[in-house]
Design a protein around this nucleic acid. Structure first.
Lengths: 208, 208
DNA sequence: TGCATTCTACCGAGCGGTCGGTAAAACTCA
DNA sequence: TGAGTTTTACCGACCGCTCGGTAGAATGCA
């Protein structure tokens, strides 16, 4: 996740079941889940602290501030998209296949580590202007990547007749919408949803 | 200590020309816009008061409380959907035509009175459990309406092969996603977007 | 005058964040 | 090895501030 302190065995009082690798990463993970459920403003530092068995003061030993906490989560989400979607898909030559993989992989990530990626798209208002600009820029370049893929499809006459700018927005709507309702352990598996969303998008994009 | 009393100099500001009757409606409208821009928690009652040229106490003459304010906005949004989408579309016999109109009309409303309808889908967490349940129930029946339309299409062999439950979620994703990016006065007209989203959905739904 | 409207002045609760302090683990080095 | 020292990991108490909300006086209008 993000840089953390030395790997020191802890066993203070209760809890501290080793299992997870390190405390700070734990905190960021739990915080991401809480923030996704209740929203950034509605989630207090005390709540987050309680959720990881700390007092607020104890929490501040690991986290420099609320805004930085959010920033860490968002940056992690962005990196996950970068490594898990953009990089592998840039290697795909066929534009239709590439688009399909973008949609499938992004949706799959959403179902797997929902917290960070959902927050990434929903809570950028809580960020400082500097951090917000950085995130917005990355999102824009991701959008551009998808747009270019659509342009290639258009050139080859494979695209349904439509406005490419609006089409790309619709595609992101379909992907990000999953975060609105999907909950792990529910009726559908992540892979199932990812395939279905990919089918949905491809049917909407390609010429009939 | 220092003298703190201020002179009782006061002046009377001319009231806006609007009649006092729709002052409350004005307030709800402005509040909806503010809340959509900044989020419910991040929008304070003082800000809302300022936006309608009142002090906070003055605002409370018209509004019983923050939660009730949100509830009023959300209920208005729900009624708008009801009268502007569900009722007119229930009268349409042809399932494909009906689905198309649902998507088009809902999207169009989103671009026209974005505030209330966006909040309707994004800020239900701020509601009291009672009010939240009521809204969730209405949303569910709306979803069911769309689902049934899809089932009819399936029976007639017009539906692309897919899971209907997931398809309906994808359709709502496409509609609601517009609220994420659309701003009046931008690059696209509301009607343009509504048609494009409707095309997108129909292409994704119907058998090729 | 009486009523509708809007004000000033204030409250308690909860927020993000800090401070001083400390038990126990980890690190020295004779 | 073990006494002395430093570091890690945390807590209780508290601070300044803003929030939603209220009491009651002041004002405008019929």
């Amino acid at each position: 996740m993000l840089e953390t302190k030395k790997p020191v065995k802890r066993y203070r009082k209760k809890r501290a079941e080793s299992s997870s690798d390190d405390r700070a990463a734990d905190i960021y993970r739990v915080a991401a889940e809480l923030i996704r459920e209740k929203g950034f403003d509605a989630t207090s530092m005390s709540e987050i602290a309680q959720a990881v068995n700390l007092t607020k003061a104890g929490l501040y030993y690991y986290v420099p501030g609320k805004e930085e906490l959010l920033n860490g989560i968002v940056r992690y989400g962005m990196e996950t998209i970068e490594h898990g979607v953009v990089v592998p898909c840039q290697a795909i030559e066929d534009p239709a296949q590439r688009l399909r993989e973008v949609v499938r992989r992004h949706t799959l990530l959403l179902t797997q580590i929902g917290g960070a990626i959902t927050i990434l798209t929903d809570e950028i208002n809580g960020l400082s202007p500097k951090h917000r600009r950085a995130i917005v820029a990355k999102k824009r370049s991701y959008l551009e990547f998808v747009r270019e893929t659509l342009e290639i499809l258009k050139l080859r006459g494979l695209l349904r007749e439509c406005t490419v700018g609006l089409l790309s927005m619709n595609i992101f709507s379909a992907i990000l919408g999953v975060a609105r309702w999907y909950r792990p352990g529910g009726q559908f598996e992540g892979a199932e949803v990812a395939d279905e969303v990919a089918d949905f998008v491809m049917a909407a994009v390609l010429k009939a």
